[in-house]
Design a protein around this nucleic acid. Structure first.
Length: 574
RNA sequence: GCGUCUGUAGCUCAGCUGGAUAGAGCAACGGACUUCUAAUCCGUAGGCCGCAGGUUCGAAUCCUGCCAGACGCGCCA
């Protein structure tokens, strides 16, 4: 797999400038870091601003730029190197660029952009983590799709990822649920309405408990019974869990997301005492108001709660136990936790506790926060029934897609299959197209928008490219690379954007930010659609047609790869 | 009260490891389908980059203060 080296113009420039200007004493890396992409095509493809050099050389920046322009031989990678004021602008020679980029994509195929930097090391990714007996709603979308995208991105860079669904399958809410079930529920009703019925019972419990606080005690008692291994309590707990998992699975099937481990909170029950003991041995635990805490004053954080005054554990305890278990089991080089930004402090605290326990790998624990999802400006609330179920959203998106297909392309084969890819793709892309950290207000109109910067736009562009290749009977084996024929500005723009893909993938991984790939794909699709309008591909001149077909194939390949990294399908027709 | 994050065009957002005239999409208006899928493309209009200072040759980008919003701050997760 020749996936570790990509043509790197910055590297070439840094090398050349370093040679021409040895007196600056700058390392190649330092020059590399100064290089930037100019704001306008007319100013070339890469630029070296000379202000910093001016300080070192004690010379006006525009003079340095002029001098460098005179000394540097552009060939073979550049067609010109010009000084424009204080900038040294590099104009990439299109033919070598097109040749290198397209040849690379032809040899690598769907591995273009991949690298082997992970060396097979493990990255554990904790994501999705819905709560049992509660609806799987749009609030869970971000964690699920961001986690899945990071999984695919890191695999693409040579890591071995372990996806863990840390299910919320333990806690007093099960006591509440059993209490409500015993009082107002029935096996028939649960079998019939599944999570909807469980949710009804849960809401009912809270309504009733407002009048009758004794219910809370009853709930606690039932949860205690689960913990003590009481047969009835345990079998109800298992039953609720099965019902929930079956329902969650339908959503994961629609999204085509799978996990390597479904070890939820309950999995760590027998691993918590050891953590508490270890904290005691390491003299990190302090008693405070009857609870056991780790004091973090020194680090300007509130204390981390380890045990309640009744001696039971808290979620930080469970998270620490899980981290220790995962380190031992997987020996990860990084463990990512994809959860809402609201939990930032919690992660900062228990990461610090792990560090204080003496584990150097505490630095490998990374919280990947994302913004809050609200509904028409109001918080989602299971109890108030103010939620949009993810499954409803996905199914509505699929239905809408099917309607559009019936209107625009009624003869399409396997419509339902395509409708699912596109409808789901629209929803997934919507969640991955903006910076993670932004809060979002869910809107049906936006979630079901298929025009402009959307998933369907990317898929449509991909399908268009496929359509051309199909009509031309294109085959990669017989393809002829003819970069000199791709000389229209629109074609060159596409080539230049294709060149950027590997570095975008790398940035997305470094910043844990799938939206970098989303934005890139929008650019690529846009450039391609511009080319599509300006340049007819299926033309009489066989040489020209062949040259353009290779470009179309390359775009199709990169779009499919990029969409794949986001967890989105790329249908060949739609 | 303390802390974290966010504030860019009417709306949703890029750009934020400082650099050349601040970019998209949606909505509005005007154009482009007998030609490779118009879920597309092109054009017009739309901006004291929250406010005020500071650092710098240069600030949407860095620092400080303020304003607005979101979230968090001990026995839920």
């Amino acid at each position: 797999m020749q996936t570790n080296s990509y043509l790197d113009y910055k590297e070439i420039i840094a090398e050349t400038v370093g040679k021409v200007l040895p007196e600056t004493g700058l390392e190649k890396q330092a020059i590399y870091a100064l290089l930037e992409y100019p704001p306008d095509e007319k100013l070339g493809d890469l630029a070296l601003p000379c202000f910093q050099l001016s300080k070192i050389l004690k010379k006006a920046p525009h003079l340095i730029a002029q001098e460098l322009a005179a000394k540097i031989d552009p060939a073979p990678y550049f067609e010109a190197v010009k000084a424009t004021g204080p900038y040294l602008n590099f104009y990439v020679a299109p033919v070598p660029l097109a040749r290198e980029v397209l040849a690379k994509i032809m040899t690598c195929g769907s591995n273009y952009g991949a690298r082997a930097i992970g060396g097979g090391e493990k990255i554990v990714i904790d994501f999705s983590a819905p709560n049992i007996a509660k609806p799987f709603h749009v609030g869970h979308l971000s964690s699920t799709v961001i986690g899945n995208a990071l999984y695919k991105i890191f695999e693409f860079l040579g890591y071995n990822c372990v996806g863990i669904n840390h299910l919320g399958d333990w806690g007093t809410q099960f006591g509440k649920l059993i209490t409500a079930y015993k009082k107002w529920g029935s096996a028939e009703a649960v079998e019939r309405d599944l999570i909807k019925e469980l949710q009804r019972l849960y809401v009912k419990f809270h309504d009733e408990a407002e009048q009758d606080p004794a219910l809370e005690d009853e709930a606690r008692a039932w949860f205690q019974k689960i913990e003590d291994g009481d047969d009835e309590a345990l079998s109800l707990w298992r039953w609720f869990k099965e019902i929930s998992l079956a329902e969650f699975q339908r959503v994961y099937d629609l999204l085509e997301i799978a996990f390597d481990s479904m070890a939820g909170e309950s999995f760590y029950n027998d691993k918590i005492d050891a953590v508490v003991n270890e904290l005691k041995e390491k003299q990190l635990l302090v008693e405070s108001d009857g609870a056991a805490i780790v004091n973090l004053d020194e680090y300007e954080m509130p204390p981390c709660l380890i045990l309640k005054k009744d001696g039971s554990s808290l979620y930080a305890t469970r998270d620490i136990a899980a981290a220790l278990y995962r380190k031992k089991t997987y020996n990860f080089v990084k463990a990512l936790y994809v959860t809402g930004v609201a939990q930032s402090l919690h992660f900062k605290q228990w990461f610090k506790v792990v560090e204080l326990m003496g584990y150097a790998w505490a630095k490998d624990l990374v919280h990947i926060p994302f913004g809050l999802v609200s509904l028409e400006g109001e918080k989602l609330s299971t109890r108030k029934g103010r939620v949009v179920l993810l499954e409803d959203l996905l199914r509505t998106a699929i239905e809408k897609t099917l309607a559009i297909i019936n209107e625009k392309n009624p003869g399409l084969a396997r419509k339902e299959e395509v409708a699912q890819m596109v409808g789901v793709g629209a929803v997934v892309f919507g969640a991955l197209s903006v910076n993670r950290i932004k809060d979002v207000t869910f809107s049906w109109e936006e979630a079901l928008s298929f025009e402009g910067e959307t998933g369907p736009y990317l898929q449509y562009t991909h399908a268009r490219a496929c359509s051309i290749l199909r009509k031309a009977g294109f085959s990669l084996e017989k393809a002829v690379l003819a970069p000199e024929k791709l000389n229209e500005p629109a074609a060159l723009r596409v080539v230049k954007t294709l060149y950027l893909f590997p570095e975008k993938v790398l940035s997305a991984a470094n910043e844990y930010e799938p939206s970098i790939i989303s934005r890139y794909l929008i650019d690529l699709a846009h450039d391609f659609n511009g080319f599509y309008h300006e340049c007819q591909v299926l033309v009489d001149d066989p040489g020209l047609q062949q040259a353009r077909l290779v470009l179309v194939w390359a775009v199709k390949t990169v779009l499919a790869t990029g969409l794949g990294l986001l967890g989105i399908k790329a249908p060949e027709q739609m």
